[in-house]
Write a protein that binds this DNA or RNA. Structure first.
Length: 254
DNA sequence: ATGGCTCGTGTAACGAGA
């Protein structure tokens, strides 16, 4: 079972690349973030023609998340039920006995901004939500764009980013709070040392210069962690023409 | 020190992303 996540920064623009990547990598499940399209605009037929089902939670202009799957998608839940949020950032479903929770976490802009307060409330809600999900589903994967670089290894220039948005001690604690629920950072379990960046700024040739952040993650429940065989970032699509600023991340389970 | 690029919106700049 191969499960992947990719922030596509507009599915309208990136659909051909997503379809190419599905053919190349043949994941069982791919979850997407930043669809930037309304519910009725989702290209369901394009995925169906490639043999994939889909469930999605769309929104005009911003946000939007989707689950693409080769296998039947069951018990779909859009949003976190206990957190009233106009922004479409969460969709969950069960596939082959695994609870899949796809998240586009809040960016936060800057640590003194209103958006940072929203980010704080949002992560508190996510922690409570995941506590309930984990109590109900032994095999759970929480994956997506977390907009947090968990440690200095995940940052190309830790001193430059220290205390800044995505890297502040408070945000890193929010990420740790999720791990404290029993979740494991699958990429770091497989590869403890190499940076494995997942995002590079479009500006200043940051990808070519290998200057990025690791902010997209795949977190696994204990029952799923023992099944983990592989975890990796596929940097190739970041080098394609007209790329997303994020690269896909995937994990393989036995 | 600032902005750098790429989106959507709407058809010009501007907000947002990270």
């Amino acid at each position: 079972m191969k499960i992947a996540t990719w922030n596509v920064n507009s599915l309208k623009v990136r659909l051909p690349q997503v379809l190419d990547w599905l053919k190349q990598q043949s994941p069982d499940v791919l979850v997407l973030q930043e669809l930037k399209l309304e519910h009725h605009q989702f290209p369901e037929e394009a995925f169906r023609n490639e043999g994939f089902q889909a469930a999605w939670n769309g929104q005009k202009t911003y946000n939007g998340v989707a689950i693409i799957s080769k296998h039947p998608i069951e018990d779909v839940q859009a949003d976190m039920p206990a957190f009233a949020d106009e922004q479409k950032r969460v969709i969950a479903a069960s596939i082959n006995g695994i609870r899949i929770v796809d998240v586009y976490c809040v960016n936060g802009e800057a640590i003194d901004s209103d958006k940072y307060i929203y980010k704080q409330h949002w992560f508190t809600a996510l922690q409570h939500y995941m506590q309930q999900v984990l109590a109900q589903h032994e095999n759970t994967v929480l994956l997506g764009d977390f907009n947090i670089a968990p440690t200095d290894i995940d940052v190309y220039d830790p001193e430059k980013w220290r205390g800044k948005i995505l890297c502040s001690a408070a945000e890193r604690q929010w990420f740790q709070n999720l791990l404290d629920l029993g979740l494991t950072d699958s990429l770091r379990l497989i590869n403890p040392d190499a940076p494995n960046f997942t995002w590079w700024d479009y500006r200043m040739n940051m990808f070519r210069r290998k200057l990025g952040l690791r902010i997209d993650h795949i977190l696994t429940s204990p029952a799923l962690t023992v099944r983990l065989k592989e975890a990796a970032v596929d940097t190739a699509p970041r080098g394609w023409e007209r790329p997303s600023d994020h690269a896909p991340v995937y994990a393989v389970f036995g």
